[in-house]
């Protein structure tokens, strides 16, 4: 174990961890947006939207995220979409995560008893009011934990952008493994930082989950 080397290079890993966190936050925001839109489409009364929502989920969950990133980043310029690697990473991973979140959000909404909606209508609330004031608050509580699982996967999936040369944690580890031939030490540095990020996120989700539960 070469601790001197680890001490020398760790500042670069810390900086890279910052990029990983930024990537994760932006991807999570885009993923939640896509997930909410996707769930709305899948629950729509219009068959066109339902079909589009189902196709979105099926295609983006049915193909590797890495290939989706490559199509966007390397293939994008051919159809007039020119993005730098970081932008392509956020957009590609965000749309991918959105497909998984669509199912999470939809699952939570449809698990709310139908009687709730009927009761809201009976009390004179409109369809929209009933959803917004009665169904959604209850569904939101059920979503926190599974969305936390999605978030955990998403953070680990940010490693994929190393393949399009975004200088984040995995890319940094890969580069130092290549130049120092010390795979174990570099894995340890990057691994510890990933686990801190994952652990902190998990605690945050657990806190939020406790916060939204009714005793």
């Amino acid at each position: 174990m070469d601790f001197d080397l680890m001490l020398r290079v760790y500042p670069f890993f810390i900086e890279a961890a910052g990029t990983t966190i930024l990537l994760s936050v932006l991807t999570a925001i885009l993923g939640l947006t896509c997930g909410a839109l996707g769930a709305a489409a899948r629950l729509s009364r219009l068959v066109v939207f339902r079909f589009l929502g189902a196709a979105y989920v099926s295609v983006f969950r049915g193909t590797p995220a890495l290939i989706q990133l490559f199509i966007l980043y390397f293939g994008g310029p051919q159809i007039g979409i020119q993005l730098d690697a970081f932008e392509a990473g956020v957009i590609g991973l965000g749309i991918n995560a959105g497909a998984y979140m669509t199912e999470t959000i939809r699952g939570a909404i449809i698990s709310i008893d139908k009687g709730q909606r009927e009761a809201a209508r009976t009390l004179g609330l409109s369809q929209f009011q009933g959803f917004y004031k009665v169904i959604l608050p209850q569904a939101a509580r059920l979503m926190v934990r599974p969305l936390g699982v999605n978030l955990n996967m998403l953070i680990k999936a940010t490693a994929l952008v190393a393949a399009i040369s975004v200088i984040e944690l995995t890319y940094t580890a890969q580069r130092y493994i290549g130049s120092t031939y010390k795979p174990f030490e570099m894995f340890l540095l990057a691994g510890i930082l990933y686990m801190i990020i994952i652990y902190a996120t998990g605690r945050g989700v657990a806190w939020l989950d406790r916060k939204v539960q009714i005793n």
Partner: peptide
């Protein structure tokens, strides 16, 4: 708690 890609690098180069 760590990405698969990172694990692949560890196993392959390790």
């Amino acid at each position: 708690g760590t990405p698969l890609l990172l694990q692949l690098f560890l196993i392959y180069f390790g």
